[in-house]
């Protein structure tokens, strides 16, 4: 049995909120550079240059790379042999968000009621997905999610007979309709299978995978590559102004499905593809 203190979780979460917003992950930066080599549109190249420069300024000055510092979404893996002392896990995460977003000069973008829409003032509550795993470790991952790209995401319950073609068409249609709104170049997370909410969650989890890593299952890896190629032929380009770089990667996750269903979810992430993990 390992004991982890409430206060330690608070301070770790506060740090994660800030780091995720200041420091762009290497895999995303590499994807910018690779796309810049392949981009043919002069405006597209100038935008990719801006994004590379932007990441550098954000890192050096500890400024958020995007002013929309997002909904604080967490994926937490709790080892069964971990005991949290001094309070409840979710409270510790919310306190960490409160401190991190305030001390880190991050924007508070959450309204406390979806219809009355008054800002909570400290970016809480966070959204926390917890799973119990073996062992005595606590793994906390934050993936702050901007509104612009989240708004262009969607779920569709396909008929099983529509098969993989139906899945591909829905992904392409969703990206096509999103156009310039989710700040392309985007990262496309796709969840196939499960139930309606399971597919949506898979799509979000798919966004956590590094952009240069394909799915372990070779047929799903091939699907990812085919979708990326088709998306980049849409011509949307950086910021939707035309070009080859519409998406940096397509990550697909799958789950068994009911005999009667084929759910598919597409979660679009912008190039501010932020996530950071820590293991306690």
């Amino acid at each position: 049995m390992k004991t982890i203190k409430y206060e330690d979780i608070v301070s770790v979460v506060s740090g994660l909120c800030q780091e995720a917003n200041y420091y762009l992950e290497e895999d995303v930066l590499e994807a910018f550079k690779k796309s810049r080599e392949q981009e043919v549109s002069p405006l597209g190249i100038s935008i990719l240059d801006q994004l590379i420069e932007n990441a550098k300024i954000a890192r050096e000055e500890r400024m958020p790379m995007c002013q929309d510092t997002g909904f604080a979404v967490f994926f937490v893996e709790v080892g069964q042999d971990v005991r949290i002392e001094g309070g409840v896990l979710e409270d510790a995460i919310n306190e960490g968000v409160r401190q991190g977003y305030t001390e880190g000069y991050l924007r508070k973008s959450i309204v406390g009621h979806p219809l009355e829409r008054k800002n909570t003032g400290d970016n809480t509550p966070a959204i926390v997905y917890t799973t119990l795993v073996a062992g005595d470790k606590l793994k906390i991952t934050i993936a702050p999610k901007g509104g612009g790209s989240e708004n262009m995401s969607g779920v569709r319950m396909l008929k099983p007979a529509q098969g993989v073609e139906g899945v591909k068409n829905f992904v392409i249609e969703t990206v096509d309709k999103a156009g310039s709104n989710p700040c392309p170049p985007i990262v496309v997370g796709v969840g196939i299978g499960g139930t309606m909410e399971k597919a949506a969650l898979l799509a979000k989890q798919a966004l956590l995978r590094p952009l240069d890593r394909r799915h372990d299952d070779s047929s799903i890896a091939a699907l990812e590559e085919e979708l990326l190629e088709r998306i980049n032929k849409l011509g949307i380009g950086p910021q939707g102004l035309g070009g080859r770089t519409t998406a940096l990667a397509v990550n697909v996750e799958i789950f068994p499905a009911h005999i009667a269903s084929l759910p598919v979810a597409v979660n679009i992430n912008c190039h501010s593809a932020r996530h950071k993990s820590i293991i306690l």
């Binding site: 420069e53 932007n54 790379m65 002013q67 700040c183 910021q239």
Partner: peptide, 13 residues
């Protein structure tokens, strides 16, 4: 005009 969405640190300069 479009400004580059997400190039927010650069624009602030």
């Amino acid at each position: 005009f479009a400004a580059t969405g997400g190039a927010a640190a650069l624009i602030s300069k």
